[in-house]
Amino acid sequence: MHIVVCVKQVPDSTEIKINPETGTLVRTGVPSIMNPYDHFALETALNLKKEHDARVTVVSMGPPQAKSVVQLGLALGADEGVLLSDKAFAGSDTWATSYALSLAINKLGKFSLVLCGMQAIDGDTAQVGPGVAQQLSIPQVTFCEEVKVNGKKAWVRKATDYGYAIAEVDMPVLLTMMMHKDFEARYPSFLDIFNSDQKPYHVWTAEDIGAKKEYLGLKGSPTQVDRIYPPEKGCETQMLTGAPGEIAQKIVDILKKENCLR
């Protein structure tokens, strides 16, 4: 079984800084990490690898320094790593990114599962995973928390607005993963990092994956970003705690105090 995991390098959200003048994200000096949802997807793949003797490939797209997340994947136990890195990819939106990733996955050959994080903590779009599935013409299940493989089928438990749903799907399938609330990212040992340098690692350009340049980068992206700005603080939030009845009473009291109720 071959599992492909898509990972993204993102700024550590605990260190986010916004330039107050331009309203853009300050990336200089901000440490980069593997998107936590992708990290969970990777761990899911590595657990399946242990149970099913699978082969795991990590794929990322980004500037040369994004090698770091691919190598982290290799150090944690993946077998092969691919970084899509080319100026032609710069500025790609979710559509163009999905297009490039799907070409890379196809180039890797046969696969049973593609695992992605449900969204990246920088853009929060949650569009790339589904986009890749669409480009690959395979089914998708989003917001999965648990995956099991049985023969040619995948069993998944996914979150819904009201609880959980269980699904059984034919493979190949793309799953986007959301974390258990108690998930703690694992970090590799020094020896694993050292040995990861010996594993197969490729940097592919747009040409390597046979991508059409007009579908890549800013020009190939249908999304136009108007501006990015931190939300303005409009009002104060008050958190009410206690038993449901107590909270309801507190709300009534507040509404009365504000003259909304008599």
Binding site: S68, Y187, F190, D197
Partner: peptide, 17 residues
């Protein structure tokens, strides 16, 4: 010395520990 990426990963593992 090793490459900056490997070194960075080691430092991150240490920090995380």
């Amino acid at each position: 010395s090793m490459d900056a990426v490997s070194r960075g990963l080691m430092l991150e593992s240490l920090r995380n520990y």
